[in-house]
Simulated assay, not measured.
Amino acid sequence: MHTLIVAGARPNFVKIAPLIRELKKQRTITWKLVHTGQHYDYQMSQSFFEELEIPSPHHHLQVGSGSHAEQTAKIMMTFEKICLEEKPRMVIVVGDVNSTIACAITAKKLHIEVAHIEAGLRSGDFSMPEEVNRVLTDAITDYFFVTEKSAIENLHKEGKKAQHIFFVGNIMIDNLHYGLQKVGNTTKDSHVVITMHRPSNVDDKDNLQQILQAIIEIAKQKKVYFPMHPRTQKKIEEFSLQKLLENDNIMTSPPLSYLEFLRLWSTSSLVITDSGGLQEETTALRIPCLTIRENTERPVTLTHGSNTLVGTATQKILDVYQKLENNQNYQVPELWDGKTAQRIITILQEISAKTSLERKSI
């Protein structure tokens, strides 16, 4: 079965790396990697390929930046040419970025089957572009690989067939285990790590200022490390908020590579973020996480894990922060065991075998 694997943005690379490592061990599925170029600078792309030992893409679309519409259109136009050239039986997409929906639509219009890794997650918040991408991708997906049981319920409600939904666990955690082995022994520290990049947080001056005020208060007690997404840095400068971060206990930096960042947050006492992936990774390592959003598409991190939704108000963030010491009863969700990629490959091999039999019987 010939398959194209699509990656385009920083979180995608983390999710495809374990899959590619497993694909190299078998011969049933032939595959090629397509990098859309949605994230295209060194920190946001190339360093991930090097550290996670992802091979050079067979196809690099180099679409670059642009509005959501521009970026999606560029990906569709260039990916269509690749599909016509490669004639894959299946396209595998991951996550919820523009590359995910653009390549899923393109494949489906060419009558190519689509498999979605991390399917079925829902926040219910359509102001998030990722939620639009998730819902639309799953509307046309053929095979759904899900990370948590809430995703199965969501897909059932949307009328998806049970036999096409596979509870395989979280492929992000496969890579987490892999990365921790490469990082080696690390010593726990009391520092705090913050990341944020979502438009609702960084494009709104009041929200951004509220979050930064909370960080200032936390920095009175602990060192705070703040690797800045380019969008966040741009907005802090645009709103003239740089002085808020002039604090000996607040360490700012450009984006870090995957392993550098893993070494930093995995030894921390607390992570504050608006990232979806970090909610999961901190849950896997039982590190407290304050998510500066009003909702999450990953509810298992709230019900079983170390994650708490705190919104963007300064006092709410600080109130939850002060109570963290008394709440350490965290769990690791089911099948978040580092073996998700193995389960996905087994299922893909079964799909390939079944299809071959069906074609022979025609």
Rank of each mutant, 00 (worst) to 15 (best):
G179S: 13
L212Y: 06
R263L: 05
I194H: 01
K243R: 03
A214T: 14
M196S: 10
I218R: 00
D203H: 09
Q233L: 11
K220D: 14
M228I: 01
Q209K: 08
P199E: 02
M228N: 03
E238P: 07
S253C: 13
R231M: 04
I171P: 03
K205R: 08
E217D: 14
I173E: 08
Q209C: 14
T232C: 00
L241N: 03
R198P: 15
L259N: 08
V202I: 15
M196C: 14
N249Q: 08
T195W: 05
S253Q: 04
D248R: 09
I215W: 01
E246C: 09
Q242L: 09
R263I: 03
H197P: 15
E260V: 13
D203Y: 11
H197Q: 11
N201P: 13
V192L: 00
M172V: 10
V224K: 00
N175G: 15
E217F: 07
D189R: 02
A219M: 13
T187K: 12
Q213M: 10
N175Y: 09
D174P: 15
K243Y: 03
D203E: 14
F239P: 15
Q213G: 02
H191R: 08
T186V: 12
V202Y: 07
L244H: 04
V168S: 06
F261G: 03
P254T: 03
F226L: 04
E260F: 02
E238C: 12
V202A: 07
I216H: 08
N170V: 15
P199T: 01
Q213P: 04
D206C: 12
T252P: 06
I211H: 01
S200N: 11
N201C: 11
I218F: 04
G184H: 05
L244K: 08
L259M: 08
L259D: 06
E246Q: 12
L212S: 05
K243L: 09
T186Y: 10
V192W: 03
G179N: 09
D174G: 14
K223D: 10
S200V: 15
K220E: 14
D174H: 04
P199Y: 01
Y178F: 07
D189C: 07
T187D: 03
R231S: 01
L212Q: 08
V183S: 02
K220L: 04
P254W: 00
L244P: 01
L241K: 01
G184F: 01
E238W: 12
I215E: 04
K222M: 07
F239G: 14
N247K: 01
D206M: 08
N247H: 12
L264M: 12
V192F: 11
H191V: 15
G179Y: 02
I173V: 15
L264V: 05
N201L: 07
M251L: 06
F226T: 02
Q213S: 10
G179I: 13
I236C: 01
D204T: 03
I236T: 05
P199G: 00
K243I: 12
H229V: 07
D206V: 15
P254N: 05
H197N: 13
V168K: 09
F226N: 01
H197E: 14
E238I: 07
N249H: 07
L180F: 10
V202F: 09
L212G: 12
W265E: 12
F226S: 02
